[in-house]
């Protein structure tokens, strides 16, 4: 399956069109269908990246859209794509799930992600001990890992990360830098 990339920074007219659909859907839930169709796949991918169980991922995704429709009256148009609100609901749903069962949280690595992270840590030594990465990723906090996941697993720009985590873009960059430094130290400690 091809990774469907959803352009975060949509055109003003696209965002306004979404807003019109949202307003209609507030009166009739069935009018939400175009937004479901547009965002189902990226939300499912977002959720599944963090889980191991396909059925659970599908169910959580459905719950995200259910929550969105149930709370649609509270949604305010802030000039941003509707997707940012959906992702936040997804983050909340996943956090609730992981609070009940921490073991459901999954780290899904591949060659590309591993290489990118190693490269970011700027130490040739690390490239020789790629398997250590998996060990140290388990040692950082869920919050720190979430940032790494959005940046290196999903390749999101910092502006988008800021919006999803409700921090400024600058803050996202600073935090990401600090997490990388932490990973470097953990890497060195592990290598020894």
């Amino acid at each position: 399956m091809k990774q469907e990339s959803l352009t975060y920074h949509q055109s003003k007219s696209a965002i306004e069109l979404e807003h019109d659909i949202v307003e209609k859907a507030k009166k009739n839930a069935r009018d939400f269908a175009p937004l479901y169709k547009k965002y189902h796949t990226p939300i499912l991918q977002f959720v599944y990246l963090r889980l191991d169980d396909k059925d659970v991922a599908i169910d959580v995704t459905q719950q995200v859209f259910l929550k969105a429709i149930e709370n649609l009256q509270k949604y305010e148009f802030r000039g941003l794509p509707f997707s940012s609100w959906l992702y936040r609901i997804a983050i909340n749903e996943l956090n609730q799930l992981f609070r009940k069962n921490k073991k459901m949280r999954t780290i899904n690595l591949n060659e590309s992600i591993t290489s990118d992270l190693i490269h970011e840590m700027e130490d040739e030594e690390f490239a020789l001990h790629k398997e250590t990465l998996a060990i140290i990723l388990k040692k950082i906090s869920a919050t720190d890992f979430q940032l790494i996941e959005m940046r290196f697993f999903e390749k999101r720009p910092f502006s988008e990360i800021g919006e999803l985590l409700d921090i400024t873009e600058n803050n996202a960059k600073v935090k990401a830098y600090r997490v990388i430094q932490k990973l470097k130290e953990l890497f060195k400690a592990e290598a020894v």
Binding site: R105, T106, I107, L109, N110, A134, L137, K138
Partner: peptide
């Protein structure tokens, strides 16, 4: 993340 499951590829 110590309880997290790990998958590769």
């Amino acid at each position: 993340m110590k309880d997290a499951k790990l998958n590769n590829n």
